[in-house]
Simulated assay, not measured.
Amino acid sequence: MEPTLTMQQMVRRSGVEASALRYYEGLGLIAAERSSSGQRRFPRSTLRRVAFIVFAQRVGLTLKEIGRELARLSTGRVPKGEDWSKLSVSWVSRIDERIAELERLKAGLADCISCGCLSLDQCALSNPDDRAGRLGPGPRYWLGKQTMGGLRRE
């Protein structure tokens, strides 16, 4: 039988607050057994699942997406390194997208702040005649490469 950890031990070892662990349990992302007094007892392998959840959130996955990923794991044994590697393979493109988005924000940050107008519909440099508005709703330039009437932003 796998050793178990109390809630306090899980909090101390995982760095995740008890309220979050209870929430993850409620969502079915982790599971705990109950002692005769009703206290939660987590299998020690739950530490790996919690680390996976924390890392996946930092990559940008929602808890719903994390749940789908964790559901792909075998329930009959403790997941190993190769199991976690298989799950995280699809994250590379997501990480690349986030890096590209942050690079776009970094590149435009100094220009927009130094200008002072803070208005894309009035900005003669970045958005003459509000061309971005014709591309659709939202922050069109920050969503990626867009072309409109000769204007190209990256």
Rank of each mutant, 00 (worst) to 15 (best):
E2C: 05
E2R: 13
Q8D: 14
Q8C: 08
Q8M: 12
Q9F: 01
M10N: 05
V11H: 08
S14D: 06
G15L: 03
V16L: 07
E17A: 15
E17L: 15
A18M: 10
S19K: 15
A20G: 04
A20R: 06
A20K: 07
A20N: 13
L27Y: 01
L29S: 02
I30R: 01
A31R: 15
A31V: 14
E33N: 15
R34G: 01
R34F: 04
R34M: 05
S35D: 12
S36R: 15
S36A: 15
G38S: 11
F42A: 02
F42V: 00
R44C: 09
T46M: 10
L47G: 03
V54Y: 00
F55Y: 09
A56N: 04
Q57P: 08
Q57C: 13
T62E: 05
E65T: 07
I66G: 00
I66L: 06
A71R: 08
L73K: 05
L73Y: 04
T75H: 09
R77L: 08
K80F: 08
G81H: 10
E82M: 09
D83A: 06
W84R: 04
S85L: 13
V92P: 02
V92A: 12
V92R: 15
S93L: 10
S93R: 14
R94V: 10
R94Y: 08
R94S: 11
R94Q: 13
D96N: 14
E97K: 10
L102F: 13
L102T: 11
L102I: 13
E103I: 08
E103V: 11
L105V: 01
G108D: 06
G108S: 11
G108L: 11
D111I: 11
I113Y: 10
I113G: 05
S114T: 10
G116C: 02
C117Q: 04
A124W: 03
S126V: 03
S126I: 03
N127R: 00
P128G: 02
R131I: 11
R131F: 15
G133L: 02
R134Y: 07
R134H: 12
R134K: 15
Y141I: 06
L143M: 14
L143W: 09
L143V: 07
G144W: 00
G150L: 04
G150Q: 06
L151P: 00
